[in-house]
Design a protein around this nucleic acid. Structure first.
Lengths: 140, 140
DNA sequence: ACTGATACTGAGACTAATTCTCATTTAGTG
DNA sequence: CACTAAATGAGAATTAGTCTCAGTATCAGT
């Protein structure tokens, strides 16, 4: 459908184009995000990447966010999650079980259309985030 | 349109029905939330209510959340916001300016319909949260 | 390849948000 | 009024995220 392996390269290129350098630690953060198809928290990344400092993880995420390569999502837990943004614009939203915290991605075309039809004077809209809450089968 | 003054009483009744006691500090948290039409953070509530402990504020919010009387919303800032849930089901979502952090409520019928049409096996859906991101007129 | 300017880094101090603990108080029942 | 368990406030503890700074590494220009 899309080429997930390419997001990493695409991001590396964008980083360079923005006048930033190609550093190993930042590239490792990019590669980890490229691997994941759903949200990861900054501290998870930090824990998973030995030898990469916390500050570097947060800085890399911030830069990727500024370049429109990563999106921040809130899933009810205390920590924010981050996930890559496909250049194609293709994306998903999240369903969260309020009991066990399980998160599942979902996509819905009608929802996207409804959101794209929303206009608000005084605002230039750029992105959106939808989270559905409920109880999963195990917790019902 | 609806009777905002009643949410407070409604909540007090639900609290009692759940076997909890009627305490003054918790009632003050409820009254403050009843007064606000958009999200407030826990620490704002704590700061505003002299004589009510931080722990009590967080506990009250948690109980109200469990009873379906309050909803947690994430608006990009580090702290979560909380707002009352009208018994009528009437609610709004949020538009956030990613530059200055300004938050505005909005409502959209077509969006609500699209969301209500979403079904996901293995999940009993109960609520949803939509956040639109962009740049406000002042920051464009 | 060498060098200089400076972006980038990791460690850990720091701040902010939230949760926990516990001794004391208080609501509601009998 | 007395009793019991829920509820409270103070502040310690934990967790998430930010900041500082001295050392390191990238890259452009030789």
């Amino acid at each position: 459908m899309n080429e997930p392996a390419n997001w990493s390269e695409h991001s590396a290129r964008q980083i360079t184009a923005a006048g930033l350098r190609r550093s190993t630690p930042r590239q490792r953060v990019i590669d980890l995000l490229a691997d994941r198809d759903c949200a990861v928290t900054a501290l998870e990344i930090d824990a998973e990447l030995e030898g990469v400092g916390r500050a570097t993880v947060y800085r890399a995420i911030e830069q990727l966010e500024d370049l429109g390569l990563v999106r921040k999502v809130d899933l009810g837990s205390s920590a924010h999650g981050y996930e890559k943004i496909e250049p194609s614009g293709h994306h998903h939203h999240h369903i969260v079980c309020d009991d066990c915290g399980k998160v599942e991605p979902f996509e819905d075309e009608a929802l996207e259309e409804a959101i794209h039809d929303i206009h608000r004077k005084g605002f230039r809209l750029e992105s959106h985030e939808v989270t559905l809450h409920g109880h999963c089968a195990d917790c019902s």
